[in-house]
């Protein structure tokens, strides 16, 4: 069981991430029958940041666990969402808007994975791994 401090950090991060996502949804509302852009960009940005933090923390394992838990599973885990994507795809498909749901799902996948791949690399650059014996040239 993780320490209480980590649970508290996840709760705080979860609150901030959920409210931020809710707020962005209010500011940039979805238009019926079109791609839910707010959710798409939330997921792309969140994928980039989480991947960057993940490799940065791999390089710096001394980073406090509560801080990693609060920012990773807490803030970014709650900020990004999978259920809203599945629900929107379901609704668009039911309404016969096949081009829209295919575009939404495709863009979410391609941009989300590209963002995570980019973050994964940049996180390594920001915090270079300590030299390993017989490691990289």
């Amino acid at each position: 069981m993780p320490p209480a401090k980590a649970w508290l950090a996840v709760a705080a991060g979860g609150l901030a991430g959920s409210e931020l996502r809710y707020l962005l949804g209010l500011v940039f509302p979805d238009h019926p029958g079109s791609v839910p852009w707010a959710t798409l960009w939330i997921n792309v940005v969140g994928s980039f940041v989480l991947a960057a933090l993940t490799t940065a923390w791999m390089a710096r394992p001394q980073t406090a666990f509560w801080l990693r838990a609060g920012l990773g599973p807490g803030l970014l885990g709650s900020f990004t969402t999978f259920s809203a994507v599945a629900f929107a795809v379901d609704q668009l498909a039911r309404n016969g808007q096949h081009a829209v749901w295919i575009a939404y799902l495709g863009l979410s996948l391609v941009l989300g994975l590209l963002a995570a791949a980019l973050g994964w690399r940049l996180g390594r650059l920001a915090a270079p791994l300590p030299p390993r014996t017989g490691g990289r040239p």
């Binding site: 959920s18 599973p73 970014l76 709650s78 900020f79 999978f82 994507v85």
Partner: peptide, 17 residues
């Protein structure tokens, strides 16, 4: 329930990462 519980429970960033 939808934006809070389901949105907070599921994650896209952990999936892609």
């Amino acid at each position: 329930l939808a934006t809070g519980l389901a949105g907070g429970l599921t994650t896209f960033s952990s999936w892609t990462t």
